[in-house]
Each structure stands twice: as structure tokens, then as C-alpha cells.
């Protein structure tokens, strides 16, 4: 039990996908224009990660070695399409905001990476916990990055405007701000959280 709990908590600091493993940079940079967008993208990825980890750990023993990558990709793509359809149906506005980056969850290296490194070698429950931990760590990083960019760039947080309608520094909502913010957040992470 404590082992599984550790699998979940590892995803936050020790194996944090964004700050330590440096995986899945594209959605991290592109969708974090606000805290809520970052959170939604994180949750969509979490959903795919947990389900694909479960299915892949279940089918891994019967998949022939040479075709395991295509087989895993098909499984992942199925869950991504499922998320796509569900979001289109129930959160159409968010689907439009995140746009291209929902189908691109397929090529998010975190998911195939966890499938290869963990799910294909471990049991279903452990894999689910691993997916949950890494997914939550990813969600957490994206929400933090989104919140920082939203605060600096639009002067609001989760849509609540604390600058009284004044504009923030717009560059932080745009592309350059994404790179610079993530760079500095990584510096802070290295300085205070990472154990050398």
C-alpha cells in the first residue's frame, strides 16, 4: 500500500514530468495561457495516461515484442479520440481553446514514455497508480505555469481579475512569455525542490 502511495507522490517532485523529466513540453508551453486552460489540459492528459497505463499493462504480456510500439500507440490514440469526442460534446468552449493540442496528446512523450518504462513491466494496479501520480504531477505543473502566466500577463487568476481591469504584461500570455516563465520556474524548482 505504502509502495503504491509512493508511486503517486513520486510524480510530483522526484519524477515530475515537466521540471525533472522535461517531457511533454509542447502542451506545457502552448496551453498554459491561463490557470484554467493549464488545468484542463493537465486533466485531459491525466485521463489518457491512467487509462492507457491500465490497458497497456493488461495487454503487455500477450503483445509480441516487435509490434509493441504500434500496438501501444493505437491504444493511446483510442483514448485520446475518446477525450476529444467527450470534450466536444460536454465542454465545447474548452475544446475550441485547446484545439490542436487535444489530438496531440497522442504524441506527448510522457504517455508513451510511461507505457514503455513502467506499464509494460508492472501490474495493472501499480500502473494505474503510476499514471495517476505522473498525471497529477503534470496537471499540477501546468496549473502553476498557467497561473503565473495569467497573473503576469492578464492580471488575473482563475479568471478573477485583481488588477481592476488593467492589463498585465501581454508578452507573458504570448509565446515568448511561455518559454521565459517555464525557464524561471525550472530554475526555482532546481534551486529549492530538487535533491541533488
Amino acid at each position: 500500500m505504502s509502495n503504491r502511495f509512493k508511486l503517486i507522490t513520486d510524480g510530483f517532485v522526484k519524477n515530475n514530468p515537466t521540471f525533472v523529466l522535461i517531457l511533454g513540453m509542447c502542451p506545457t508551453l502552448a496551453t498554459t495561457t491561463s490557470a484554467i486552460n493549464g488545468l484542463s489540459m493537465g486533466l485531459a492528459t491525466l485521463f489518457v495516461l491512467v487509462l492507457s497505463n491500465i490497458v497497456i499493462s493488461a495487454i503487455a504480456p500477450v503483445v509480441p515484442d516487435k509490434v509493441h510500439i504500434p500496438a501501444y500507440i493505437v491504444v493511446i490514440a483510442t483514448f485520446v479520440t475518446l477525450v476529444q469526442l467527450l470534450m466536444q460534446a460536454f465542454t465545447p468552449a474548452m475544446y475550441e481553446t485547446l484545439g490542436l493540442f487535444i489530438p496531440l496528446i497522442v504524441v506527448n512523450c510522457i504517455i508513451l514514455g510511461r507505457a514503455e518504462a513502467f506499464a509494460s513491466k508492472n501490474g495493472v494496479l501499480d500502473s494505474a497508480c503510476d499514471g495517476l501520480g505522473v498525471g497529477l504531477g503534470f496537471t499540477c505543473s501546468l496549473t502553476v505555469l498557467g497561473a503565473v502566466r495569467e497573473m503576469l500577463g492578464s492580471g488575473s487568476i482563475f479568471g478573477w481579475n485583481f488588477l481592476g481591469g488593467n492589463d498585465g504584461m501581454l508578452a507573458f500570455v504570448m509565446a515568448p512569455g511561455a518559454f521565459i516563465c517555464l525557464g524561471y520556474l525550472m530554475v526555482l524548482f532546481n534551486k529549492f525542490l530538487k535533491k541533488s
Partner: peptide, 12 residues
């Protein structure tokens, strides 16, 4: 990576 990201930001 951090300094690389900051440089890309300036390039962007």
C-alpha cells in the same frame, strides 16, 4: 534546460 528555455523566449 532552464537557460535554454529563457534564450528561446528571447528568440521568440
Amino acid at each position: 534546460v532552464p537557460i535554454a528555455l529563457i534564450s528561446v523566449g528571447i528568440l521568440a
